[in-house]
């Protein structure tokens, strides 16, 4: 498959095309981390993060590709790994107690939210995730999920979001996260 064709499919939110790219450049990208003091797991994680950045920017229409896909992803990998190495370096100087306390509260909230998302229907989850993470337009969501039109997608998104608000607020109240 040609690169231009792959990119077009990615822009439309084709997850199969994402898999093709992932497989195609896996060794090339992970080698960057592996040859710079990274583990196999770190290498894979960095590559996946970079690929998802590429995915988000492509699907949301924010990316105008002027280089090869591999070059773009490679540069993201490089930046992410540099940041990770800096974070590791900083980590030893941080006061862990305060950070841990904040992490615990944030983690508990995140756990509640994720639990509530799972309570939503499959369509609701997709609409909200496509909208907030992938950055798909309402038109693309409508096409992807087979809605009649953009308005249907907008309405669906509004209702799903409202429902999630209610469920999470209820859970937050039980956990004393709401004042």
């Amino acid at each position: 498959m040609k690169e231009a064709e792959l990119f077009e499919r990615i822009k439309k939110g084709d997850e199969d095309a994402l898999e093709v790219i992932y497989k195609k450049y896996y060794r090339m990208m992970t080698k960057l981390v592996l040859s710079n003091n990274g583990t196999e797991e770190e290498a894979k994680d960095i590559y996946q993060e970079a690929l998802l950045v590429f995915w988000q920017k492509s699907v949301s229409g924010k990316l105008v590709l002027t280089s090869k896909i591999s070059t773009y992803i490679y540069s993201i990998c490089l930046n992410l790994w540099r940041k990770e190495l800096e974070r590791k370096k900083r980590h030893s100087y941080e006061e862990k107690d305060g950070v841990q306390h904040m992490d615990l509260e944030a983690k508990e909230k995140a756990r509640i939210v994720l639990g509530c998302i799972d309570q939503l229907g499959d369509t609701c989850k997709k609409v909200l995730m496509y909208y907030y993470y992938d950055g798909l337009s309402m038109q693309d969501i409508a096409e992807k999920l087979g809605f009649a039109n953009t308005n249907t997608a907008k309405t669906k998104k509004y209702k799903c979001k409202k429902k999630l608000d209610e469920v999470v607020k209820t859970q937050y109240s039980k956990s004393d996260f709401v004042d």
């Binding site: 995140a110 939210v113 994720l114 509530c116 998302i117 989850k125 909200l128 995730m129 496509y130 907030y132 993470y133 992938d134 979001k161 999630l164 608000d165 999470v168």
Partner: peptide
């Protein structure tokens, strides 16, 4: 909520 949705996706 939005961070949760992004994290989920």
């Amino acid at each position: 909520l939005i961070e949760g949705l992004k994290s989920k996706r």
